[in-house]
Design a protein around this nucleic acid. Structure first.
Lengths: 352, 352
DNA sequence: CTCGGGGACAGAACCGGATTACTCCTCTGC
DNA sequence: GCAGAGGAGTAATCCGGTTCTGTCCCCGAG
């Protein structure tokens, strides 16, 4: 089933068929009808490979995910993001080529292959790090790309599509402050990642804006184990926080569990805020107060922007829905014996 | 940068270059060296599009996921499976093309496009239903495929790559039975899906094998909401179960939460078993006893099998690691007042 | 010494469309 | 009545590889 068969059946030349299927003028109504009918009868559609070759465009977008395969399900971001990206790509007529690589070297090779073999027309850059060198590499490979990440405060590379991560975290801090909390800690993500830093900075800046001292920060790595460890570390302090803002839900839930293990009750003794709003967030004990982003829509926007870039158009500045703060059961008023502003209760650690 | 440039630089014809890069004989050592050197210097690699066209092979595999985008992150299966599939595909030199579709009609169109446009050489069939009509459709499209799913007891279509779901569930039931439980309920997955049915049957068969009456079954849909609802329904009965085997972790965790809400303690009043071993399973209160599968390896095996099929080879029967039963804190001895075999304690609902 | 065979390569056709450069033909305007 | 413009449609070329068909040359066997 080739374009030639359709042309023969419609009694026209291959070019006429091509014209019709690419929406260009130069074919009369009668012929167009015959061609469409022939194509329908033969159930023909232009071969993607041949089309890719002759238009020198793969009509595909690439997404390289650098993560150990077994850790991929830790991250609620990717499934949603992939779904959104795919939805946007499909709508634009592009296929999505996915690749999962374990480390930096493999990631670099993946981009090189994508570029050299013309497998994809553009790629998404996720998990941005501070001073990420990949942007330069892609430029050198002439591989169009969009950067997926929270809008970094400064020097954000052009073509960044991001949600305002910071707003959600600020809302969380204000919420805790309004509940009377004064010692609000943060369990951060892996240092060096833009989204980790943005969330940490938002937490710090909002505290400062509220006239509070930035509480302790513990570095995590977005895993449950890290969340539990960080929580123990914070509660072991002589001045334990009355509230913790975690950089993601997985750490937050593990943190609540760690707190429960040492007899610290959430939210009466300790308030907890997560980030992501994973499906399980409403169903843990207590249900988790967190920040929700529309990741699917974000992915769609990224795909649309990348397609525009690939096709030489200027991607239109999209307004993504802001992160939403979801109040549930894991946050509550500061414990009565810890509240007073003037009286530090540092000598009385929470629990046991 | 084309094969012609390389040929010119090495003073040979295009065919010689092609031969070298496809490992066929007919090129002398001297020429081969010159060609490889030229290719290296020019940093040339065969263009995937051109190669796809002339070999009439896309060198890509397709994975169509039918699921509402926002529900995709409910499922711990896909990220891992995708990672495994991608790993296997890459190793075999194939790219992975992903598509997420919302419904049956879109799924059908997706396969048709894949086939007609020759975008992929084969596809994976997931989320098998009983009497799935898709296998026939793919055969009609001449689209090679492998079926991804638990080995169904009977009439499994050829080319099914699956882990033994049933073994894990049976282990769970035996574990609960050994702890003294006699009324073991099941919260099933969406009916009609092979993996739902396999788990339900395994639960039932093992109970029968142990000489116990199959307890009540409630149909769920793998979501947290369903898990909570089903748990309430079971605990509302006049003869509430002392243990529940859930078809997945999300429902199990939501179920534990629902139990806690009504004062039923896990595991002292109620034992709970999940399925999947999501990253959070060890970090909920109490930690969740569940069944773990090596989904990544499973995905790899599927990819390798599909590649073999596509290339006309007979896929070699792989032995996948069996599902593993992980005992944690959510299962315990049957409550003392409910244990006796001869004395039904049905009139005394647990809790409140 | 000659003929057959095979290895090492070159050249051309081909994969299935897109695109460009033309060729008609008809309608318009003067 | 005729030149020119523009629409309809065709033939040829190209995209960048793969593969089939030949050609040349060298070597060994008879």
């Amino acid at each position: 089933m080739t374009i030639g068969d359709v042309a023969a059946r419609a009694n026209v030349s291959k070019s006429a068929v091509s014209f019709v299927f690419n929406g260009r003028p130069g074919v009369g109504e009668a012929a167009r009808e015959r061609i469409l009918a022939a194509a329908r009868e033969l159930d023909w559609r232009p071969d993607a490979r041949a089309r890719a070759l002759s238009r020198s465009r793969a009509q595909a977008l690439g997404l390289v995910i650098r993560r150990a395969p077994e850790l991929l399900s830790n991250d609620p971001f990717f499934p949603q993001f992939v779904a959104g990206v795919e939805s946007g790509s499909s709508d634009g007529g592009y296929a999505l080529v996915l690749q999962v690589v374990p480390d930096r070297a493999a990631e670099k090779r993946a981009y090189e292959r994508f570029a050299h073999e013309s497998r994809v027309d553009g790629v998404f850059l996720t998990d941005m790090r501070l001073d990420d060198e990949r942007v330069g590499e892609l430029d050198r490979l002439w591989l169009p790309h969009v950067v997926v990440g929270p809008a970094a405060a400064s020097d954000e590379p052009a073509g960044t599509i991001g949600l305002d991560d910071a707003a959600g975290v600020r809302r969380a801090v204000r919420h805790l402050s309004a509940l009377g909390h004064r010692r609000i800690a943060h369990v951060a993500g892996v240092p060096g990642y833009v989204h980790s830093e943005v969330r940490r900075q938002a937490w710090e800046q909002e505290l400062v804006a509220l006239g509070l001292a930035p509480g302790p920060v513990v570095e995590g790595d977005f895993t449950g184990a890290a969340g539990a460890r960080a929580t123990h570390e914070l509660l072991d302090r002589s001045d334990p926080p009355t509230a913790i803002v975690f950089a993601n839900d997985l750490m937050a839930i593990a943190g609540m569990s760690a707190a429960a293990d040492r007899g610290v009750r959430v939210p009466s003794d300790l308030s907890v805020v997560g980030y992501d709003d994973i499906p399980l967030a409403p169903y843990v004990q207590p249900s988790l107060t967190t920040v929700r982003q529309d990741v699917v829509e974000w992915g769609r926007a990224c795909a649309l922007a990348l397609i525009a870039t690939v096709e030489g158009r200027e991607p239109d500045r999209v307004a993504l829905p802001a992160a939403e703060f979801v109040v549930r059961g894991s946050t509550g008023p500061v414990p009565a014996d810890r509240a007073p502003l003037g009286r530090p209760a540092d000598d009385q650690p929470t629990g046991r």
